[in-house]
Simulated assay, not measured.
Amino acid sequence: MKRKSLSSMDCPVALALDQVGEWWSLLILRDALQGSTRFEQFRESLDISPTMLTRRLNDLMEAGLLKKTSGSGRSGRDEYRVTDKSRDLSPVLIMLFAWGRRHVKRKGWGVDLIDLQTGCMVDPIVIDGKTGLPINRETHAFVPGPQATASTLKRLGPRQDVERKQ
């Protein structure tokens, strides 16, 4: 069953989810960003059916998030490589990882995120690239953009308390 397309929405979150919103897709990208390249590596890591994996890989290639190349080495099997577009998704996966660690209760974790220089665990945050300050709900807001639809204007409402600058 094909899911509803979000391509007509004017929200970057909806448009991003339209390309990568399937949970299998995010897990495949996670593995690819961590070095997996072969069909069997993804299948074994995720315990996903070959049919579902083929669909997801094709969707990710169509979206420009993976590219298929002829394999290196003796096997000659095809490999799936990350693109710049999928590398740009890495911080999103890191923040999803951090959210899961913080809010999903478990007795222990099988994966840690560490600083390679210090060996210490890290606690990632989102910062503004212009100011270097953390982004949070108290100091930042989503506001309608110049191309906002009526639906977006209704959802976000007008902001009289903000002077907008480029």
Score class of each variant (00 low, 15 high):
residue 54 T to N: 08
residue 82 V to K: 00
residue 17 L to I: 03
residue 70 S to F: 10
residue 82 V to T: 14
residue 58 N to L: 10
residue 28 I to V: 15
residue 29 L to I: 10
residue 100 G to T: 10
residue 54 T to A: 15
residue 20 V to C: 05
residue 59 D to F: 04
residue 74 R to M: 11
residue 61 M to S: 07
residue 40 E to Y: 10
residue 27 L to G: 01
residue 92 V to Q: 02
residue 64 G to N: 07
residue 88 D to N: 02
residue 48 I to A: 15
residue 78 D to T: 02
residue 47 D to Q: 15
residue 66 L to P: 03
residue 27 L to Y: 06
residue 89 L to V: 07
residue 87 R to Q: 12
residue 65 L to Y: 15
residue 97 F to Q: 09
residue 36 S to R: 10
residue 21 G to P: 10
residue 42 F to V: 04
residue 84 D to M: 05
residue 32 A to P: 05
residue 45 S to Q: 13
residue 53 L to A: 06
residue 47 D to P: 02
residue 73 G to A: 09
residue 39 F to H: 13
residue 86 S to P: 01
residue 104 V to H: 08
residue 86 S to W: 06
residue 58 N to V: 01
residue 30 R to D: 07
residue 55 R to H: 13
residue 68 K to D: 04
residue 67 K to F: 08
residue 86 S to R: 02
residue 32 A to T: 13
residue 88 D to Q: 11
residue 20 V to K: 03
residue 97 F to N: 01
residue 78 D to F: 05
residue 14 A to R: 10
residue 78 D to N: 14
residue 77 R to K: 11
residue 86 S to D: 03
residue 86 S to M: 03
residue 64 G to I: 10
residue 94 I to D: 00
residue 52 M to E: 15
residue 17 L to K: 06
residue 41 Q to A: 14
residue 75 S to H: 03
residue 60 L to H: 07
residue 98 A to C: 01
residue 76 G to N: 05
residue 103 H to G: 00
residue 92 V to R: 00
residue 95 M to T: 01
residue 40 E to F: 05
residue 46 L to R: 13
residue 66 L to A: 05
residue 48 I to K: 09
residue 18 D to M: 11
residue 76 G to K: 08
residue 45 S to Y: 05
residue 97 F to M: 05
residue 29 L to Y: 08
residue 24 W to V: 07
residue 27 L to T: 03
residue 18 D to G: 09
residue 96 L to A: 15
residue 100 G to F: 03
residue 62 E to L: 11
residue 69 T to G: 12
residue 79 E to V: 11
residue 28 I to H: 12
residue 20 V to I: 15
residue 55 R to C: 10
residue 86 S to Y: 06
residue 37 T to F: 04
residue 28 I to R: 05
residue 98 A to Y: 03
residue 22 E to S: 15
residue 41 Q to G: 12
residue 61 M to A: 04
residue 83 T to Q: 06
residue 68 K to T: 09
residue 50 P to C: 12
residue 17 L to G: 07
residue 26 L to S: 14
residue 16 A to L: 15
residue 22 E to F: 12
residue 32 A to R: 15
residue 89 L to G: 00
residue 61 M to G: 00
residue 105 K to F: 07
residue 95 M to L: 14
residue 36 S to N: 14
residue 30 R to I: 06
residue 52 M to A: 14
residue 19 Q to H: 14
residue 37 T to G: 04
residue 55 R to Y: 12
residue 44 E to S: 08
residue 42 F to T: 04
residue 38 R to A: 04
residue 92 V to M: 12
residue 53 L to S: 05
residue 64 G to P: 14
residue 26 L to N: 08
residue 35 G to R: 13
residue 15 L to D: 03
residue 102 R to Q: 08
residue 56 R to L: 01
residue 20 V to A: 15
residue 103 H to F: 14
residue 43 R to W: 09
residue 61 M to Q: 13
residue 101 R to W: 03
residue 41 Q to F: 09
residue 34 Q to A: 14
residue 85 K to S: 09
residue 53 L to W: 11
residue 94 I to A: 03
residue 68 K to M: 13
residue 62 E to W: 10
residue 63 A to S: 12
residue 95 M to E: 07
residue 75 S to I: 00
residue 99 W to N: 01
residue 105 K to Y: 06
residue 93 L to D: 01
residue 45 S to V: 01
residue 38 R to E: 02
residue 102 R to K: 12
residue 71 G to P: 05
